[in-house]
Write a protein that binds this DNA or RNA. Structure first.
Lengths: 210, 210
DNA sequence: CGCAGTTGTTCACAGTGTAAACATTTTTGT
DNA sequence: ACAAAAATGTTTACACTGTGAACAACTGCG
């Protein structure tokens, strides 16, 4: 059932990308732990150690998968971002964008829990949060999107400069927490309606209390 | 260098507990992934398969470790809880308790990241959130403590019954998110001062916006 | 005392990551 | 053009993991 179980050429052509794709498939159902080197090479139709020509070790492959997954999260957020009507006042737009980030983030977590965990449970430093390989199709990383709408809120005077400072951490923590508890923690098993409700109220709380 | 590499009796005496303790040690530095069956048996000085007389599989051991870790989290929260002055009005006490839960929860995460992840990253259902084996020395689970202070807030009239409903999820998500991002996510590497600041502002936000 | 149940051990196997040596193909320098 | 060098894939090998099955030693009960 595999597309091309054997290949004619000795060289693969684009093994790195193929392994990355396989890794993403593994992460999609199974999360970061499911990204196992040998299985990826198996799916690509190559010997296990071929992977080491393109990734230093399993961790490097997982890092690459994580970066792509963060880009996919960014894409999901951009979808919500684009829905925000632009024909209103600055403040309303900014608040809409903040809400869009939250909705998109949690939406991605709920729709793609495996990729979400691969994206945000693999330890990375904040210093790399802006690196282009973590960006979505629009060229912006999830963290950049959070920062951006906070800038908008500050520019519109919705939040004071004092409150805007490091506000990323607050906004991010809030939605990240709900996402994690729902897909991977004790809040799993809640009905979609209950999650929707929690999500709405959570975003209300951020909107009011940031 | 091991305390008792061999034992005189064929029977161990309390192998289950010994394995659990070893599992906790492993989780303490290394988190849930570090809880490996063979290493636990090795530390206890017993053959690998002896573990199967007391735990169905590795997952069962991890579950047990997770439950104990949740109890330790509860203990940590109780410490903050007990600090709240009782000689004030009901509302102030209730709000203090909510804050104590947040402080204790994040404190536990920062002080014992491995145990924290073992406690709250191992999937469990909310239906078991009250089971006594997850309780601390005071007999209350972390989730019970959240629920309790929300009840207090409602009784004191700080939050309306409408807002109290399912408020656990909001409060929990918020602190859980910060904890996870700080110990395991992109917010690692923040200075303790920045984390302190984020924590304070996060709890302020919950206090204002719940 | 004998025997059944409990608990620990041994042997075995499949799966994982990864190092080292080897093979093949492509690139590059003269 | 052609040999040397670099890049890429394979094979072999090892240590480690979880876990099933058969076996061994101890315990308590009739």
């Amino acid at each position: 059932m595999t597309a091309t179980p054997v290949r004619s050429t000795y060289r693969h052509g684009d093994l790195r990308q193929a392994l990355l794709d396989a890794g993403l498939d593994l992460a999609r159902d199974g999360g970061p732990d499911a990204v196992v080197l040998r299985e990826a090479t198996r799916r690509v139709g190559v010997s296990p150690n071929a992977a080491y020509r393109h990734f230093a070790d399993r961790g490097a492959l997982l890092d690459a998968v994580s970066a792509v997954a963060q880009g996919l999260a960014a894409d999901r957020i951009e979808i919500e971002w684009a829905k925000v009507p632009a024909d209103t006042d600055e403040a309303t737009i900014a608040r809409g964008h903040l809400r869009a980030v939250g909705t998109g983030y949690i939406g991605f977590a709920r729709e793609q829990p495996g990729l979400f965990r691969a994206a945000f449970s693999v330890p990375h430093d904040l210093r790399h949060a802006f690196s282009p390989d973590k960006a979505g199709a629009a060229g912006r990383t999830p963290f950049q999107l959070v920062a951006l709408c906070l800038d908008e809120l500050a520019a519109a005077g919705v939040v004071t400069p004092e409150r805007r400072r490091n506000g990323e951490f607050l906004a991010w923590s809030t939605v990240h927490g709900l996402a994690m508890l729902v897909i991977d923690g004790p809040l799993r098993g809640l009905t979609p309606e209950m999650i929707d409700d929690a999500e709405t109220r959570l975003l209300d709380m951020v909107d009011r209390g940031l």
